[in-house]
């Protein structure tokens, strides 16, 4: 903080300045600057602020019904969109147990915010943004330090990252999984979401990822290239 107030009553009588400096240093560490571009974050924000008539009516209608107290409408949303929330949480570096916690927190948060989602058609964007925030908070609390979402996941023990081992059927699965888990988190998140976005029932995600036009595609391409390079380095894709 600059020290140029001519009308300050006294020159820092109780050592306030060092205290504020220390506080600033702490908070700067707690909320670090992330130099990497966050295309997905921007896309999800833009999706929420851009009501377009093509976004799925279905989720909007369910959300409206849920607002009016229809519990089964909310349950349907949960059933249909939990995979989205799950993959965002997992893509942000959480192990399965923490990801489950975050999924629950996000849906509770939706219940609290039901009346305040400005654009019901943009539910997918809201879910993506909220889940990332909760995932990063959970990661920070579990690891005792700031979660830069662009961090590589390599410092996380392999076992916490593996899905149920029986799900990894063969050696190739395991090699792919290791290469995938070593990608920057933002890539893991984006690749998971672009898979969902390719499906009819997640058209909302596709639309959330479509803006700003053209930025997600190249990012996805770069992530795939990195994945391929890692696999080749490990010996034969």
């Amino acid at each position: 903080m600059t020290d140029d107030d001519p009308d300050r009553p006294t020159a820092d009588p109780v050592g306030l300045e060092p205290r504020l400096d220390e506080l600033r240093a702490e908070l700067t560490e707690a909320i670090p600057d992330d130099p990497d571009a966050d295309d997905l974050g921007v896309a999800a924000i833009i999706a929420q602020g851009s009501p377009t008539p093509t976004t799925p009516e279905r989720h909007a209608a369910l959300l409206t019904a849920a607002r009016d107290g229809d519990g089964s409408a909310l349950d349907t949303l949960v059933a249909e969109l939990t995979p989205l929330v799950w993959h965002v949480a997992r893509g942000n570096g959480l192990d399965q147990a923490l990801a489950e916690d975050v999924v629950q927190t996000v849906w509770l948060s939706l219940l609290r915010h039901l009346d305040r989602i400005a654009e019901p058609r943009a539910l997918a964007g809201w879910l993506i943004v909220t889940t990332r925030r909760e995932a990063q908070r959970a990661w920070r609390e579990a690891n005792g330090r700031a979660a830069l979402s662009s961090d590589s996941a390599v410092d996380v023990p392999d076992t916490r990252w593996l899905p149920e081992t029986e799900a990894l059927r063969d050696d190739r699965d395991r090699r792919l999984w290791r290469a995938f888990a070593a990608l920057p988190r933002r890539c893991q998140e984006l690749l998971r979401l672009t898979v969902l976005a390719g499906r009819a029932e997640y058209r909302a995600v596709a639309e959330a990822l479509a803006m700003p036009r053209g930025s997600i595609g190249p990012t996805r391409g770069r992530c795939l290239n990195t994945l391929r390079a890692r696999l080749e380095r490990e010996g034969g894709a």
């Binding site: 059933a79 997992r90 489950e100 999924v103 849906w107 509770l108 799900a167 999984w177």
Partner: peptide
């Protein structure tokens, strides 16, 4: 990966339903 290797646990949706109830 999305469908078979790392899908949400099968009980998760039921858990959330109960929680919201």
């Amino acid at each position: 990966l999305v469908d078979a290797l790392d899908p949400p646990p099968t009980h998760l949706v039921d858990t959330v339903h109960a929680l919201l109830l």
